Simulated scan of single mutants.
Amino acid sequence: MPNRANLDEIRAFFAKMMAAASGTDDPRYERAFELVRREAFLGPGPWHAFGFTPVAGIGPRYVETPSADPIYLYQNLLFALDVGKRINNGEPFLHAGWIGSVAPKPGEVVCHIGAGTGYYSAILSVLTLPDGAVHAFEIDENLAHRARHNLAPFENVAVTTGDATRLPLPPSDLIYVNAGVVAPPPSWLQALRPGGRMIFPWRPSETVGLTLLLTRAGAAFKVKPLGPSWFIPCVGASNEGECTRIPDSREAWSARSAWLRADREPDGTAVAVYRQMWFSSVEIPAGQQPVA
């Protein structure tokens, strides 16, 4: 029989697949996903993979790996961080695509909201070296404790336990949100530096879920929908009562700019309106486009 692949070979292939899923040719992505070991952030095995089913009336369930061999972790599956709360380590290919879309650069300051046990915080930290910094926020005390332990070897990462919708964020080049948001808090938008990016799962209603990429351009924010996404709700940013105009799926996908109401009140182009901000179907003026 031919020799079977060992764990290092499987991890290296996983890293190549993640780099391909990022949509970029930057060699740093493959190195980052090979360097950061997924098993170091999931706790001792066996682990529980989150299984989906297309059959109506049959909900998702967890499937336990046959053993504690890390080889099972290097595939495009969600694994539980907390089975009871249905909190998972996010889908690898989705996150690879997100990270490729926001393109973290050396020296940038990143806020990771909903860091879990820190796996993607670690990836972001490697991609911002040298001289970058990652501020990881996690509201669940147990997960934050685990993240602080897991991220100890990554000297440019600081973990904060608490509600990122209420805590001050540092001036940021990138805000990376891993929980479903009805509307991003103004403090997040205001924390973005000129040209800064924020990526988050937008959940304006129970039936709409998509990834939005926001880029700061003066007083406005350029909006780019990237694809469907479904995350657990973000504590402090999931109140549909904040919305006075709820978009349907077509309107949500048509969003092209966002504004704080302190800077500009909603007009006839509004597709979603909230107490402190709103989304428009019209792109921001060319003179306010972010500089690359």
Score class of each variant (00 low, 15 high):
184 P>W: 05
77 L>G: 00
102 V>M: 05
93 F>N: 09
151 L>M: 08
216 R>K: 15
187 S>M: 12
106 P>S: 06
130 P>M: 07
253 W>F: 07
289 Q>L: 12
155 E>T: 12
257 S>G: 08
100 G>Q: 12
192 L>A: 07
37 R>C: 15
121 S>I: 10
130 P>Q: 12
76 N>A: 11
172 S>C: 09
175 I>A: 04
261 R>Q: 01
136 A>W: 14
238 S>R: 07
221 F>Q: 01
60 P>I: 03
117 T>G: 01
285 P>H: 04
284 I>L: 15
50 F>V: 08
212 L>T: 02
190 Q>W: 04
288 Q>L: 13
193 R>D: 00
255 A>V: 06
201 P>Q: 08
178 N>L: 13
84 G>P: 11
271 V>M: 03
145 H>N: 12
245 R>I: 03
192 L>W: 14
291 V>T: 13
191 A>T: 07
277 M>E: 01
290 P>M: 07
77 L>C: 05
87 I>D: 02
157 V>A: 01
222 K>H: 12
233 P>H: 05
268 G>Q: 07
207 T>S: 14
266 P>K: 00
63 V>N: 06
208 V>W: 03
182 V>R: 06
35 L>I: 10
292 A>S: 11
65 T>K: 11
143 L>P: 02
152 A>P: 12
140 D>G: 00
41 F>G: 11
167 L>I: 13
160 T>M: 10
292 A>L: 11
76 N>Y: 06
55 V>P: 08
48 H>L: 14
281 S>Y: 00
78 L>T: 13
176 Y>K: 01
40 A>Q: 10
190 Q>A: 14
261 R>W: 00
248 D>W: 04
30 E>N: 05
25 D>M: 03
279 F>L: 11
20 A>C: 04
158 A>L: 10
